[in-house]
Structure formats: structure tokens, C-alpha cells
Write a protein that binds this DNA or RNA. Structure first.
Length: 435
RNA sequence: GUCCCCAUCGUCUAGUCCGGUCUAGGACAAGAGCUUUUCAAGCUCUCGACAGGGGUUCAAAUCCCCUUGGGGACACCA
């Protein structure tokens, strides 16, 4: 039985890099019908925070990376001590007193060549003479990372250690400990790191944003998963949009690239827009409704879901993130549209009183107020006025929506309704007495 | 500084293992156009890479070596 693990430390949020490590572990477990284990590396009690732990668990769940088992290192201190004692008795480790503190247990490194077999990179040889003796248990009684990691991976029967490249140089140290403890050495696979856009490690500035922040920015979990998948792996047939279940079938750990990849926000956005476009409109509405409530655009309950669904369909094809809907469709929910000053200067600096008035009059008498009749009315009017449609379309759009961008004008009018259309256009008519 | 990893368009990649089918394919981005009622979307096209140098070979993006460049690790942090 294949057993893999993701071992985050709750000293920070789950970011893109961590999420990808988790994803590949999860993917490998699913592809091999194995178990995906979550191990919380909270040995650093001073820096570990519950807030971070909650975010990590929440984000993994949101991404759909469900774990089969979970362990906390803070609850396993006695296990580490026990194994350290064993090495002490064997004479493979020694203890050292630190003045004012307790006793540390230190592993004695002996000169030898250490071969690391990596599933992605092949065989790598390290020289142990370059390594210092390794502290196993610190003088405060807590285990060091490398020791706790080995004891846990061994006792939890982890068969494959899939982790970031930055751990490659920890691997020889850990292999030494596996051997000293008499544990079988697991398989290793070191994933290439994700680099920031300016090169170098991912940082806050360069995309190491918490997964929870991507959620807040309106990204879909399936889009993030898809993007992460493409970063150092490819289905090989030029496909960019790939379903996770399809990926499980095609995935082979040997196909993971060795090259570090640069995080590209634009491509993530493109993938997100693709998922948004193909998403079921009903489901998209379900995602948007809570955001509309949060924005106070609609009441908590007692709103017309079908109406919102219609609006969602209007914008679905042009959105990059969920937030786009909130920004672009705001005029449907606000009493008055927020008029963009530039749009006003460009299209409403001229007086359209006469045109607006005529248009309103004709709209109001329509028995059948639908897309076709609205358009017919409009086309007829501009024909009679002898002007191009565009001359009037843009000013009306700005008056109704406050923006120069958006869905087709006749859809806007239809979903705004007669009354609101009239009211918003009337505001731009100079001599009200004639209405 | 020492050790380790890596190297195809600006970015993500296919091709590299098993040299010839590669005048190197796709996607994002960028640019142009079509469509059009704006913005998107969509469609069409353009720009654009085997880091450099040596080998090996009839033949190298593919194999070997060096250089250069990038990244990582060198804690009683994880």
C-alpha cells in the first residue's frame, strides 16, 4: 500500500508552493490507490499558530485535497525521545550538555558516501564528510526537523516522500538516520520549486499568496488545481484544461519536470476564466449569491434567484474571476449606477435630452417588453433621427450602467426593466417639464 | 565560500530516456485583423526558443565534457 504525506508547518499560511506539494502527493495517492496523510509539523511551539493551522486545513479542503489520516508532531514528542534514546544506547549518538539548559542528543555522522535515489532526478551522491553531526533532540527536549521527520515517516509507514526541491540536501542526513534506526528507506521524489516572477523564491510580492486569498480574489479551486498541475507536469497532448480525474489517470511521477517553474498570474487568470465559462450557470449563481449578500447587493433571503441567474448568464462569458461579476454587474443592484467620470466625459458631455426622451416614450408604451421589441424600438428611432446606432448606444449605456463596458445594451435594458431604465435616462434630460 | 540540482519562445511546456519523422509543436502573454453596440469572448494571422563552446556520430534539441547562467541547501527553523 502506497502511503504519502504532506507535512506543513503551521507557522504560515498554505501558499501556492505548499498547495502544489500537497496536490502531487494527493494525486500520487489517488493514482496508486494509496493513502494521503497529513502531518502537522508543529514542533516549534513558539511560531506555530492555530490561525495558520485552520487556514491550512480549510484551504486543503477547499481545493479538494482530502486527507485520509492526520497527525500532529506536538503529540509525538515521547516517540522521538524514545528513538533518540535507542541511538544513544547503541552508541550511534551522544549527548551534550548546554550550560543553563538541558541535554541535547546528537547523532554522530561517520564518513561515507550516501546515495539518494530520486524518482524524478535519478541517483544523486552526497559525501557525509561534509555533514556535521546532527542534533536529534534539542536541549529543550523538542526534536529537530530532520529527526522528527524520519521517525514519523518510518513509523507512519510512509512509502514515498514527495516534497519540494529545497529538501534535497536534507535527504542524505535523513537517510543516515533511517539506517541508524534500522528503518527501511522510502522512495524520494523532489519537486522543482516554484519561482517568483522576478526569479528567486516565491515571496508575498511574487505570488506566495495564501490559498485563502486566492479564494477571496475569486478564483475557483479547480482552476488553481489545474494551473498547479501544469506547473511542472503536462498531459503531453497539448491540453491545457484538464480535469483532475483525467489527470489521476494520466499521472506518472516520472513525468514531472526537473526544472523550476515561474509562477504566471496571467495564465492562472486565463484558466480561471475557462472554468468560469464552462461552469454550470446554476452552480456559478450559488457561488455568487453569498458574495452579493456580503456586498449588501441583495438581502440575505427573499431575493429573486432566477433574476440573478439571468444576470450571471449575461456576464459568465467575460469574467476572469468571481469578483468581476460584482464589479461589472453592480448597476443592477445599486439604486443609482456609479458613473465613471471618464465615461461621462466621453459619452454624456453632449445633451441627449431629445433622444433620451423619445426613446423613453416609446419604451413605455411597449406592450411586449422584450429583447426583440426593445431593439426594434431603438433601431426604428435612430433610423428616424437619421443617426448611427452607436451614436446613441454608448450614451445610453453610460447613463444606465455608469460604464463603457458590459453586456449588450438591449439585454441591459431588458433586465433593468422599464421603470429603472426610464428613471436613469430621465436624470440626463435637461428640461423635465416636457416629460 | 562549500555541496547539490537545473538549463527548449518573455512565461508554462511537447520533443530528450530508445539520436534521423524538428526548416522544433501547443498554450499564456504581446501585436495585427475579422466580428461588432462597448468591453470581453470567439476566430484568423504575426512575433518568438534548443544558453555558449568543444566532442561522439553519416546524423544531436536529444549522448559526453567544459563554461556560463539560474535555483536550492549548508541552524539545538521547518
Amino acid at each position: 500500500m502506497i502511503r504519502v504525506r504532506f507535512a506543513p508547518s503551521p507557522t504560515g499560511y498554505l501558499h501556492i508552493g505548499g498547495a502544489r506539494t500537497a496536490l502531487f502527493n494527493w494525486l500520487y495517492a489517488r493514482a496508486k490507490a494509496g493513502k494521503f496523510i497529513l502531518r502537522i509539523e508543529d514542533t516549534d511551539t513558539a511560531r506555530s499558530k492555530k490561525e495558520y493551522l485552520d487556514e491550512i486545513l480549510e484551504s486543503l479542503t477547499w481545493l479538494g485535497l482530502k486527507w485520509d489520516e492526520i497527525y500532529y508532531q506536538s503529540q509525538r514528542f515521547n516517540i522521538y525521545k524514545e528513538y533518540a534514546q535507542r541511538l544513544l544506547k547503541n552508541g550511534l549518538a551522544y549527548s551534550e550538555k548546554t550550560p543553563g539548559k538541558g541535554e541535547a542528543i546528537i547523532y554522530k555522522v561517520t564518513a561515507q558516501k550516501i546515495k539518494v535515489r530520486d524518482l524524478i532526478r535519478g541517483e544523486i551522491e552526497f559525501d557525509a564528510t561534509l555533514l556535521k553531526d546532527q542534533v536529534l533532540i534539542k536541549s529543550d527536549g523538542s526534536p529537530t526537523y530532520n529527526f522528527a521527520c524520519v521517525v514519523d515517516d518510518a513509523t507512519l509507514n510512509i512509502t514515498h516522500v514527495i516534497r519540494g526541491d529545497d529538501h534535497l540536501s536534507n535527504t542524505p542526513k535523513q537517510i543516515l538516520l533511517y539506517q541508524a534506526l534500522g528503518f527501511p528507506v522510502p522512495e524520494f521524489a523532489h519537486l522543482p520549486l516554484i519561482l517568483g516572477m522576478q526569479g528567486g523564491r516565491l515571496s508575498k510580492r511574487t505570488g506566495a499568496t495564501a490559498i485563502s486569498d486566492y479564494r477571496k480574489m475569486g478564483y475557483l479551486p479547480e482552476a488553481i488545481i489545474n494551473y498547479l498541475l501544469l506547473l511542472s507536469w503536462s498531459p503531453g497532448d497539448n491540453r491545457e484544461i484538464i480535469d483532475i480525474n483525467e489527470a489521476i489517470k494520466l499521472f506518472d511521477i516520472k513525468d514531472i519536470n526537473k526544472t523550476a517553474a515561474t509562477f504566471d498570474f496571467k495564465k492562472l487568470g486565463w484558466i480561471n476564466s475557462q472554468y468560469l465559462k464552462s461552469k454550470d450557470s446554476e452552480k456559478l449563481t450559488d457561488l455568487l449569491v453569498p458574495l452579493l449578500i456580503e456586498k449588501n447587493y441583495i438581502p440575505k433571503d427573499n431575493f429573486d434567484r432566477n433574476y440573478i441567474l439571468s444576470l450571471v448568464k449575461l456576464f459568465q462569458g467575460r469574467m476572469t474571476t468571481l469578483l468581476d461579476f460584482l464589479n461589472w454587474a453592480d448597476f443592477f443592484f445599486l439604486d443609482q449606477p456609479q458613473i465613471d467620470p471618464e465615461a461621462k466625459d466621453k459619452f454624456l458631455s453632449r445633451d441627449f435630452s431629445k433622444e433620451f426622451k423619445l426613446f423613453i416614450e416609446r419604451l413605455m408604451v411597449l406592450k411586449d417588453f422584450n429583447l426583440q421589441t426593445i431593439e426594434q424600438t431603438f433601431r426604428q428611432l435612430v433610423k428616424e433621427l437619421g443617426i448611427e446606432a452607436r451614436i446613441l448606444i454608448h450614451p445610453i449605456r453610460v447613463a444606465l450602467t455608469g460604464k463603457t463596458i458590459g453586456p449588450g445594451l438591449f439585454e441591459v435594458i431588458y433586465y433593468l426593466g422599464k421603470e429603472r431604465t426610464k428613471e436613469r435616462l430621465t436624470r440626463w434630460i435637461k428640461n423635465e417639464s416636457t416629460i
